[in-house]
Nucleic acid binder design. Structure first.
Lengths: 208, 208, 208, 208
DNA sequence: AATGAATGAGTGTTCATTCAT
DNA sequence: TATGAATGAACACTCATTCAT
């Protein structure tokens, strides 16, 4: 049973930090890290600029926090995802990737656009997570290539090509458009499957 | 016969403007438009900041110039490209796109990353060019779909997916790596072909 | 008999105030009043900045407290000093001054350097104490000049000259150097004596 | 014959830089380096804050410039000083020091008070000059002690004592007071002479 | 007595841009 | 065509101080 004496002060701290993250994410996604000022973030949060520094030591730390937690959550989400065991792994991964990226367009956009604005050590940390994530797809492609299920030339090149293709959705898809998420997802799944010569209709694993 | 009365002064003017473009391109690609100052550009050119304003009225105009001329040259290059008439049009386009984008990594990078830093009217101008370019691919896909040569769900969605995939090469390909340009090109062509169920080996048009 | 009912709470209050004084003294001496922040002091004390305000209403009050109590203790120390009655008064004073200032380099340094950072009324209070202290020496010089023991042109000018000379020790003397305190003291006493033509060897009052 | 085509622009540059130095000197002397803002300096100069950076890269550089040029000018002035050859060297040096320091109270004050605000390398540069200057006096004292003209215990300690005494004039002397410069100078000369047992009346070198 | 989030003003410095030369 | 001094606004960040807890 959790303590009932939780101090509201704790809540307030988390709340403000949370608002800062949210405001920064939106602003960075729209205008870019370098073009957003701490004043803009503070004003969005409804606080004076100096107050931001009670929660993040520098502007760079906000960016690092956003990018690292995005990557962390992405990896966690994949780990907890339990696709139907008979679904083809590439299809499972692609569906997961598409859905996650459509739902988090801002995080995705920032994570791809602001890499160059990370200071060296922060970049290294974020890049390591990116590699871990891409390695999942590379592993799936290697397995599928090994057992003849997928046709491909090079798992790493294919990884990059497919990730770029799928992640690109976030740059153009608008929920307000004519295409539903499900439709877009299905079209891209078909592209992915064909790209490795996996029959789109036959995306259930054969149990041998 | 070219005019013999070319004034060297004209040459000098063009030369400096040219250096400005080159410096800005490199710097924007590396650090981003918002993070690069006119002072940095001037210093790279070997000139005082005020001198830049003899060639470009504002910083924004440098960006607009770079992006518009990149799109213009891209369209011109496609128009002048004379692929072998028996080559499949999708393959021809993809090969053209890959080669052009591998050779101009900085232009491509800037053109994709700095769209949000364009002021409204400049964005409109650049975006119109982008649409013209993508329309070429959409047209090819529509034709191919109509005559049953390509399998695809939606030409516009496929256009975006393929463009994202191919353009992504610029973000990871390094000439210093282990893969030759030709190899990368071939791998991507295979991906493109399979993505629309065009037999990679059968990329010559049948003449009917 | 001291009260046995001393409350530890009182002790704690005094303790923290004391730590604040000590931290501020060290920091002001090293970096100067204006260059030291309340945060630095708090961090040195091991407390949050806000807590300082339970002990001193403003940063200025810390400085005033340090300087006024330094002057107070200096005057008290002189009053309680009981030099050998046969010692020449100038020599007694100079020895006292040298010893006191060598032992309290930080207090001395702050008291001489930060006068300009005192607000008007605080300056007046501290300056009054300084005058009281210097008046002691002026009195000694006037007496000695009157009875022909010392040769000097003007007691006030001589006071300032000697005080500057003696206080200057604090700016260069390091206990870690090659000269012992006693040696330095003796050398300066000789300088003082000669400066008023008092035979260094004859520093015992003749009792008439 | 100097060029007549001197550009007034050159004059303007020097003029502003000069005003900055003057304003900074006055302000640093009155309020201390740390307590003076670039805005205050700019406002005193009659310019926007950013303009200061056309002349000094940082605030620290203004301080360095002031202190280094003060020391440089001091050393130059001593080198060019041609005291009467029959004047005792200690007296000549002391007179020079007193006069120079009375005329440049601000420079002197800043140079003694702001040493701790110099960054390490700037401090080293300034301190080296200070040592050079003090070495002049030490040399004079050593010579005089060697030929029995002065009585003293240790040339280095005596140097510090005398310099502190003489430099201290700047902290209290006001031209508006009752004592003339000449009177103060004479009184201090007498103190210096007696401090090394040099008969004040006998300050002409005996030519042997 | 102490915390820690917040304020409002301020810091040194940089910015894109202008303009007399 | 270029310089370089200047502007006026903005930047990231820090300050002394307050106050609810």
């Amino acid at each position: 049973m959790p303590s009932k004496a939780q101090r509201p002060v704790q809540g307030k701290r988390r709340q403000t930090a949370s608002k800062v993250r949210a405001a920064a994410l939106t602003l960075f996604a729209r205008y870019g890290y370098a073009a957003v000022s701490m004043r803009q973030i503070a004003s969005e949060v409804g606080v004076q600029p100096g107050a931001l520094y009670n929660h993040f030591p520098t502007k760079q730390d906000i960016l690092k926090d956003l990018m690292l937690s995005h990557m962390g959550e992405l990896l966690t989400a994949w780990t907890s995802a339990k696709p139907h065991p008979q679904t083809d792994p590439l299809v499972a991964f692609a569906r997961f990737h598409i859905r996650y990226h459509m739902e988090r367009a801002d995080e995705v956009f920032v994570s791809y656009m602001e890499l160059r604005n990370l200071e060296a050590d922060n970049f290294a940390a974020v890049d390591a997570e990116r590699r871990r994530y891409e390695a999942i797809l590379t592993g799936i492609l290697e397995d599928g290539a090994a057992n003849g299920r997928y046709a491909l030339d090079d798992p790493k090149v294919t990884t990059r090509a497919l990730i770029a293709m799928l992640t690109g959705i976030a740059t153009w898809y608008r929920a307000s458009g004519t295409l539903s998420r499900q439709t877009v997802e299905d079209y891209y799944i078909n592209l992915v499957c064909r790209a490795v010569s996996l029959e789109p209709g036959k995306t259930q694993r054969e149990n041998g």
